[in-house]
Write a protein that binds this DNA or RNA. Structure first.
Length: 886
RNA sequence: GGGCGAUUAGCUCAGUUGGUUAGAGCGUUUGCUUUACACGCAAAAUGUCGGGGGUUCGAGUCCCUCAUCGCCCACCA
C-alpha cells in the first residue's frame, strides 16, 4: 500500500461528499440493468412534485430507500432504483401562473391553452426538478439514467391506454354528480383532495315567512349565502311542531321566490330548529333530498365562488364570504334574524388551494373503483404485499372496502388531456388512443386527468409499459416501497389496484411507511410557520452522512419524529469518531494485507480481547441484517453506533494499544485484526453513511483508485474466532474491573492521568490466572503505576486502609495510605449491603416458590440460582470489607 | 360517531415473541492538554415505566378500565 497523506484531525464532509458523488455517477455504479440469472432488487421513488424542493420528509424517505438499495447492492443483487418527478397538475399550474403573473404580468387567460402549456414546459426545463439535483447531494444512488417524468411521452401513452381500457370496460364514465370544487384551482377535486378542518363559524337562525302571512319558520344554517339556491325547506315528517305546515309555501327572503315546505327524513328534529333549508345545487345531502322530491337544482355560483346572476343584481359577482355578510346584514334590517350562535364545525378545505371547497353539481369523469379494489384488497389480505408497520393495513382495508367512485377530471390545462372527443352534431362521444378518424366535427374534451391518474401507473409505466420491456420482465414487481402514510389512499392503494389490473401482478412486496417529521414542539413542518429547515443548509453545516445517520437514528418506529438541527450533532460526532478511529490506525503505519480475511495463523494467535471484538462484530452484523430485513432502520443505526463507539473505540482500540506497544509479532497481529475489523465496519456502515465510508476505505488503502466500497460485499458473520462464552465473560469481567478501578480513582478526585497502584484480589484460581495474563492490559486501561494480583485478601495492616470495588472477577483496591475517607467507604459498602440483602431476599423467595420452580423454564431457574449465588458471594465480600474497615 | 397511535430519567426516545438489578442520546455534576478524536476521555446522579384493576410462578411488555394528548375516517344543516 502506498503512503498516504495523514488524515486531518477533524472530519470535513463538504469536500469529500462533493468529490465522490460525481465519481460514482460517472462510473455507472448506480445503473441497474436486467442480468439474467442474477437476483433483482428494485425500488421506485415516490416521484416528488416537479415544483418541489427537498424537505426533511424527502430526506428521511430517500435515505431509507438509499440504505436499502446500497445494502442490496452489497449483497450482490442487481439493484435498480427508478427516479423521477410528478407533473403535479394543480400545484404546477398554480406555480407557473404565479410566476408568469409576477415576471411578465401575464397568465393562463391571456396566453391561451397551447401557449400556456408551452410556458409550463419551459418553466420546467428552467426551474423544475430542482429536487432531483438535491437528492444527489444527499447521496441517493438512484439510476439517474432512468429518470422519468409523468408527462413523458411513454408515460402519457400509458395513461391514455389505461383510460381507454377502463372506459371500454365500463368503469370510467362521464356523469353529472355532486363534486368537490376548488375555487382557487377552479377545478373539480377528488374526495381525497379535501381536508376537513375544525374551524370557528356561526350558526345563523333566520325567519322564513310563510307565504300565507300566518307567521314564519326558523331555519338554521352555517351558509346564509346559499339561500339563493334554496328550493325547499324540509322538516321531519313526524315532527309535531311543523307537521301542519307540510305542503305550505314559504317566501324565500331576498328573492321573489316561494318554496315548499317538504317532509323528509333528512331533517333532524334535534338539530338546529328542526327546519332545514334545502339547496340541492350546493350540498350533497340536499342534492339527495332534491332528487327525492324532484326539486329544481339552482346553481348560484361561478367557478371562482362568486355568486352568479341567479342571485340578483345586488349579489351578482360578489365573493361568497362577502355575500354571506351582506345577506346577514340585509336580513337583520328586515328583522328576519332570530339569533346567531358561535360554533366550531368541520369545513372541507382544498388541499392545494387551502380555501373552503364548494360542493356543487357538475359534469365530470369518474372511475368506478369497486372491481379494481377487489384483487388489491386480497393482495394485502393474503400477505402478498406486507405493510410495515402492519397496522396501516387496517386503514387500507377500511378505505378500500368503502371505496367511492374516483372523480378523475380536472378543469385545468397542465396534465394528460382526456382522450375523449365529442361530436356536437350527432351527440356522439368517442374515446380512443388517437383522435377519431370518422368524418364529422370532433372536439376533444377540454379537461385533463387527475395527477394521480398517472402516478398510480408509476411502478410499471416507468419501466416502459405498455411496451414489453426487459426491465418490466426483470424488475417488476418491485421489492420495497418507502413512502409516507399520508398518501396511502392517493397513491399506495391505487398503485396496488393498477398493478393488479394492468400487470396482473402486485407492484411491490413490502411497503414501509415512514414517520412524519415535526419540529421540536411537535408541530408539523410548514413554510408558513418557518419551522422547516432547509436540508441543504443542514448538509452544509453537518454533512450529508451526519444528516442521514441522525435522522435514521432518531426516527421512532411508526411514530412522528421530533426533529431539530441540533440532533444532527449526533451523526456529525459519530462520523468524526469513525474518522478518528481510522486516523489512529493510519498513524500506526501501513495497512496490512489481510484486511479482507484473517489468515489462519493470525486466527490461531488471537488474544481474548481480539476474539471478544470479533464476536461483538459478528453479533452486530447479525442484528443489523435482521433489523434491515424487518425495516427496523433505527435499531440497525443504534446497533452500529454502539458497535463503533463503545465496543470498538472505547474498549477495543484502547485495549489493543498494549500489543501494539509490545511490537513484533504482537503488534503485527493487532494491526491485522484492527484492519480486518475496520474494513468490516466501514462496509457495514456504508449504506447509512456512504461518503465517509468510501473516503476512508480509500484513505486506509483498503481500496484502490478504481474500486468502490459500493460493490464490496456486505459483511456476514464469519465466526473466524471461536465464540467461547467463558472467555467473553472474562473479558467483560476485566473491563468491569477497569471501570471499578477508575471509579475508585474518580471518587478520590485523582486525575485520570495520575498513575497509581492497584491491588486486585481474584475470586478464584482461574480468574487469577486470566487476570495475571492480562496484567499489562489492566495496567494500561487503568493507567496504573503497578498492579498487585493475588488470591489473598488485601493486607490493610501492611498497606494501609484502602477503598475497594467488588467486581465479578475480583475485588479491586486503591491503596491510599492515610487518604481514605473511612466514613464514605463504610457508607458505600453499607448501601451495597442493604441492596444485596434486599435482592437476595427477593431471589430466595422466588426460588423457594414451588410454582416458579415447576413452571419456569429450566434456563430461567438456573440463571436465577447462579445469580443468587453471585449475589451471596458479593455480600460475603462486602461483609469482609466492612470488617476490614474497623 | 367510528378507527388508530402515544403516555418509560429534566428533554427526545429505545426496550424484538412476558424472565436477572429498565437503557441510549442530549442536558446536568465532577475530574481530565492519558502519544485517534474537546465533534473528545473518565466517572457520577436522576425512574412509584400515566392512574386503577386483572391474567401469570413472574408484567414496562398480555387483557379490561379510566385519564390526557395526537392522527385518520365519516353526509352533519
Amino acid at each position: 500500500m502506498s503512503a498516504r497523506e495523514p488524515l486531518p484531525r477533524a472530519y470535513e464532509p463538504a469536500e469529500v461528499e462533493a468529490k465522490w458523488f460525481p465519481i460514482w455517477e460517472k462510473s455507472g455504479y448506480f445503473h441497474g440493468k436486467p442480468v439474467p440469472g442474477k437476483k433483482a432488487y428494485s425500488i421506485v421513488i415516490p416521484p416528488p412534485n416537479v415544483t418541489g424542493i427537498l424537505t426533511l420528509g424527502h430526506v428521511l424517505n430517500n435515505t431509507l430507500q438509499d440504505i436499502l438499495c446500497r445494502y442490496h447492492r452489497m449483497l450482490g443483487e442487481e439493484v435498480c432504483w427508478f427516479p423521477g418527478t410528478d407533473h403535479a397538475g394543480i400545484a404546477t399550474e398554480a406555480r407557473v401562473e404565479k410566476y408568469l403573473r409576477k415576471e411578465e404580468n401575464t397568465g393562463r387567460d391571456e396566453l391561451g391553452r397551447e401557449e400556456f402549456i408551452r410556458r409550463v414546459w419551459q418553466w420546467r426545463s428552467e426551474f423544475g426538478g430542482k429536487i432531483i439535483r438535491q437528492l444527489r447531494t444527499l447521496g441517493c444512488s438512484c439510476d439517474w439514467e432512468r429518470e422519468r417524468f409523468t408527462m413523458d411521452e411513454g408515460l402519457s401513452e400509458a395513461v391514455r391506454k389505461v383510460f381507454v381500457e377502463l372506459y371500454n370496460k365500463g368503469y370510467i364514465y362521464r356523469g353529472q354528480r355532486m363534486i368537490n370544487w376548488c375555487p382557487v384551482a377552479k377545478s373539480a377535486l377528488s374526495d381525497e383532495e379535501v381536508i376537513y378542518k375544525d374551524v370557528p363559524g356561526k350558526f345563523y337562525h333566520f325567519r322564513y315567512p310563510l307565504a300565507d302571512g300566518s307567521g314564519y319558520l326558523v331555519v338554521a344554517t352555517t351558509r346564509p349565502e346559499t339561500m339563493f339556491g334554496d328550493t325547499a325547506v324540509a322538516v321531519h315528517p313526524e315532527d309535531e311542531r311543523y307537521r301542519h305546515l307540510i305542503g305550505k309555501m314559504v317566501k324565500l327572503p331576498l328573492t321573489d321566490r316561494e318554496i315548499p315546505i317538504i317532509a323528509d327524513l333528512h331533517a333532524d328534529p334535534t338539530k338546529g330548529t328542526g327546519c332545514v333549508k334545502i339547496t340541492p345545487a350546493h350540498d350533497p345531502n340536499d342534492f339527495e333530498v332534491g332528487k327525492r322530491h324532484k326539486l329544481e337544482v339552482i346553481n348560484i355560483m361561478n367557478p371562482d365562488a362568486t355568486l352568479n346572476g341567479r342571485c340578483g343584481a345586488v349579489f351578482e359577482g360578489l365573493d361568497r364570504f362577502a355575500a354571506r355578510e351582506l345577506c346577514v346584514k340585509m336580513l337583520t334590517e328586515q328583522g328576519l334574524v332570530e339569533k346567531i350562535e358561535d360554533i366550531r364545525h368541520s369545513v372541507g378545505y382544498s388541499e392545494r388551494g387551502d380555501v373552503p371547497i364548494e360542493t356543487l353539481v357538475s359534469f365530470q369523469w369518474f372511475c368506478n373503483m369497486k372491481e379494481l379494489a377487489r384483487p388489491a384488497i386480497e393482495a394485502v389480505r393474503s400477505g402478498a404485499i406486507k405493510f410495515y408497520p402492519e397496522r396501516w393495513s387496517k386503514t387500507y382495508f377500511h378505505w378500500m372496502e368503502n371505496i367511492q367512485d374516483w372523480c378523475i377530471s380536472r378543469q385545468i390545462w397542465w396534465g394528460h388531456r382526456i382522450p375523449a372527443w365529442y361530436n356536437d352534431e350527432t351527440g356522439e362521444v368517442y374515446v380512443g388512443l388517437e383522435a377519431p378518424t370518422a368524418p364529422g366535427k370532433w372536439r376533444q374534451e377540454e379537461d385533463v386527468l387527475d395527477t394521480w391518474f398517472s402516478s398510480w401507473l408509476w411502478p410499471f409505466s416507468i419501466m416502459g409499459w405498455p411496451e414489453k420491456t426487459g426491465e418490466l420482465e426483470y424488475f417488476y414487481p418491485t421489492n420495497d416501497l418507502v413512502t409516507g402514510p399520508d398518501i396511502i389512499f392517493f397513491w399506495v392503494a391505487r398503485m396496488i389496484m393498477a398493478g393488479c389490473e394492468f400487470m396482473k401482478e402486485i407492484p411491490f412486496r413490502n411497503v414501509y411507511f415512514t414517520s412524519i417529521i415535526r419540529d421540536e414542539l411537535g408541530r408539523k413542518l410548514s413554510k408558513s410557520l418557518g419551522n422547516s429547515p432547509d436540508p441543504l443548509d443542514v448538509i452544509a453545516e453537518y454533512g450529508a452522512d451526519a444528516l442521514r445517520f441522525s435522522i435514521v437514528y432518531i426516527a421512532p418506529v411508526g411514530m412522528d419524529i421530533r426533529y431539530s438541527n441540533e440532533k444532527c450533532e449526533l451523526g456529525r460526532n459519530f462520523a468524526n469518531k469513525l474518522w478518528n478511529a481510522c486516523r489512529f490506525r493510519q498513524m500506526q503505519g501501513e495497512t496490512t494485507a489481510n484486511f479482507r480475511e484473517l489468515d489462519p495463523e493470525t486466527i490461531s494467535a488471537l488474544s481474548p480481547d481480539e476474539r471478544w471484538m470479533l464476536a461483538k462484530l459478528d453479533a452486530a452484523i447479525a442484528s443489523v441484517g435482521t433489523a434491515l430485513a424487518e425495516f427496523r432502520f433505527h435499531s440497525a443505526a443504534h446497533e452500529l453506533y454502539d458497535l463503533v463507539w463503545s465496543n470498538f473505540c472505547d474498549w477495543f482500540i484502547e485495549a489493543e494499544k498494549v500489543p501494539m506497544r509490545a511490537g513484533g509479532a504482537e503488534r503485527e497481529r493487532a494491526l491485522r485484526v484492527l484492519d480486518y475489523a475496520l474494513f468490516r465496519i466501514l462496509r457495514l456502515l456504508h449504506p447509512f453513511m456512504p461518503f465517509i465510508t468510501e473516503e476512508l476505505a480509500h484513505q486506509m488503502g483498503f481500496l484502490g483508485d478504481d474500486e468502490t466500497i459500493m460493490y464490496e460485499s456486505y459483511p456476514v458473520p464469519d465466526a473466524c474466532a471461536t465464540v467461547d462464552e467463558t472467555e467473553l465473560a472474562r473479558v467483560d469481567g476485566k473491563f468491569e474491573l477497569v471501570r471499578g478501578g477508575r471509579f475508585l480513582k474518580a471518587s478520590y478526585n485523582l486525575p485520570d492521568g495520575k498513575k497509581v497502584k492497584f491491588y486486585i484480589k481474584a475470586v478464584d484460581g482461574a480468574a487469577l490466572e486470566f487476570l495475571t495474563a492480562q496484567k499489562a492490559s489492566l495496567m494500561s486501561l487503568l493507567n496504573a503505576a503497578e498492579i498487585e494480583l493475588s488470591e489473598a485478601d488485601y493486607d490493610h495492616a501492611a498497606g494501609g486502609a484502602a477503598p475497594s470495588q467488588i467486581c465479578r472477577l475480583g475485588t479491586v483496591y486503591l491503596p491510599l495510605a492515610g487518604l481514605i475517607d473511612v466514613e464514605a467507604e463504610r457508607a458505600k459498602l453499607e448501601k451495597q449491603q442493604r441492596e444485596l440483602t434486599g435482592w437476595i431476599a427477593g431471589s430466595k423467595a422466588k426460588l423457594s416458590n414451588e410454582r416458579f420452580l415447576a413452571k419456569a423454564p429450566a434456563q430461567v431457574v438456573a440463571d436465577a440460582k447462579a445469580h443468587l449465588a453471585e449475589m451471596e458471594e458479593k455480600l460475603a465480600r462486602t461483609a469482609e470489607l466492612l470488617e476490614a474497615l474497623r
